[in-house]
């Protein structure tokens, strides 16, 4: 097992072309246009992007499931395109569509997959942990999407991998299953595994990510911790949100400032603009004079979604044309 913090996946200048595509007059379509990223042991690396951004292609090139057009990929120090049984035994993979035979029953299948490894996790324990024992004798084709996801996750973890790839692990999960899955992923991180997951859900990224790479049209357009990405955008727009009794003339508190005040749903106020400490002082005095204590008050309450949308818009402005080779 590698040390926490050491790189388990290093991708440099990864390019992937597919085609020729008839609708592009037989030209190749560039899916990845030079992806760079590093994932480390003991960290959760999240690749975030909209559908079609290249998340799955990046993952599949990292796993050796797809060949690459250019660039280098090192998975646990080796080239995944030439992975041998030894390397494959150290890597666990959960594919987006699961990759499970519909006629199989979950426990039977997991025992079969476990048999491919020299020192697998105990199947029953993992099945209990993920609640798979509740539907152990139902064929996979009759399971719900969330149940299938849990079986696919178990199959990825059964061989005690050092690195796991999870392609959209929370897709189709109900809140309860999602909780199970998130808790398990956090536990794997604590055990020192390197975890690389893709998602288009900002919630997942905010909850789990140590490092986020935002992928847009085949390029990493921003990387960092969630806090770093939020800080990166902080100066671009400031927002103060406040909940209190409905119908307050809150705009009066910002009379001398350029801030714009709006009441969204009754009692929920947003103040947008270049806010200063003077504005905050004015707001506090205004509330104090009227004896109003807000229920909540938050400054700079941007979330990853704002960052994501802003970066995507910037990136679109920079490269208006579709990448083609």
């Amino acid at each position: 097992m590698l040390r926490t913090g050491s790189p388990c996946l290093e991708i440099e200048g990864l390019v992937k072309d597919v085609g020729p595509i008839p609708s592009l007059d037989g030209r190749m379509k560039r899916i990845l246009a030079g992806v760079d990223l590093v994932a480390r042991q003991g960290e959760i690396t999240v690749i975030l992007g909209v559908n079609g951004a290249g998340k799955t292609t990046t993952l599949e090139c990292a796993q050796g499931l797809q060949t690459r057009t250019a660039g280098t990929v090192r998975l646990l120090g080796q080239d995944p395109a030439r992975a041998d049984a030894e390397l494959r035994s150290r890597v666990g993979i959960m594919l987006q569509e699961g990759g499970l035979p519909p006629a199989a029953r979950p426990l039977h299948l997991l025992r079969h997959v476990a048999g491919m490894y020299t020192d697998p996790r105990p199947v029953d324990e993992l099945a209990r942990r993920l609640g798979i024992d509740e539907f152990a004798s139902t064929t996979i084709r009759r399971l719900s999407g969330g149940q299938k996801q849990r079986v696919a996750l178990a199959a990825a973890l059964i061989g005690r991998p050092e690195v796991v790839f999870l392609d959209e692990p929370s897709a189709g999960l109900d809140p309860q299953s999602r909780q199970l899955v998130v808790a398990l992923i956090e536990e794997l991180r604590a055990e020192g595994l390197g975890i690389v997951l893709t998602t288009h859900l900002l919630d997942d990224a905010e909850r789990l990510a140590d490092v986020v790479h935002i992928l847009d049209r085949g390029r990493v357009v921003a990387s960092g911790t969630v806090a770093e990405l939020l800080a990166h955008r902080r100066d671009a727009a400031r927002r103060l949100t406040l909940t209190a009794e409905p119908g307050l003339p809150l705009a009066d508190a910002f009379a001398g400032s350029a801030a714009e005040v709006a009441e969204g749903p009754a009692g929920q106020y947003t103040v947008d603009g270049e806010l200063t400490t003077a504005d905050l002082l004015a707001l506090a005095s205004w509330l104090h004079e009227r004896g109003i204590m807000p229920h909540s008050l938050e400054l700079g309450a941007q979330n990853l979604e704002d960052v994501f949308l802003a970066i995507a818009a910037e990136s679109a402005a920079e490269s208006p044309q579709e990448h083609r080779a």
Binding site: Q63, A85, E86, V91, L95, G99, V113, G159
Partner: peptide, 9 residues
Amino acid sequence: RFLSTTPLG
């Protein structure tokens, strides 16, 4: 695809 990513190959 899934089975090819296990040690089976």
